[in-house]
């Protein structure tokens, strides 16, 4: 699971959970996988990203290479910054671990890089 995917996941599917966002990451096995850098893709994706959720997730995965607190439009020309964002969004792979609902503490397993968000019948 890339942090780009994580950025779009919520646990509000659980009965009684309001926002369920962002999910905390309890990393088991994290790998860095090289992905071709495409500045245009990062620039187009940035407005869709919840920045604080990405920052928190990167930290939880042990990646703290200077993601600033905010990214404004004036920074989109900063290739160095876009490369760091690229790395955080696309190169960090959570292979094994858990996602934790911030409201209920319910854990969702990540196995072989795939988050499993299925709930038991009594949880929905």
């Amino acid at each position: 699971m890339k942090l780009l995917t994580h950025n779009f996941l919520t646990s509000n599917i659980i009965k009684g959970v309001k926002n369920g966002y962002p999910l905390s990451i309890l990393p088991g096995k994290v790998e860095m996988k090289e992905v071709d850098f495409n500045p245009e893709f990062i620039t187009r994706m940035l407005p869709k990203i919840e920045w604080s959720a990405l920052q928190k997730a990167a930290k939880e995965c042990g990646f703290e290479e200077g993601l600033p607190d905010t990214v404004g439009e004036e920074q989109l020309g900063d290739t160095d910054l876009l490369k760091r964002v690229h790395k955080a969004l696309l190169e960090i792979e959570v292979v094994e671990g858990k996602l934790v609902c911030p409201e209920s503490g319910r854990e969702f397993p990540i196995n072989n890089g795939i988050p499993n968000m299925l709930l038991n019948e009594d949880e929905v």
Binding site: M1, K2, L4, T5, N7, F8, L9, T10, S11, N12, I13, Y21, V35, K48, E50, I114, P115, N116, M117, L118
Partner: peptide
Amino acid sequence: INIQPVTTDLVESLDVRLKGQ
């Protein structure tokens, strides 16, 4: 090809953040 799979029922757990996207 790099695809990003999520095990879930239809679009549960993704629909809020994917709204209009």
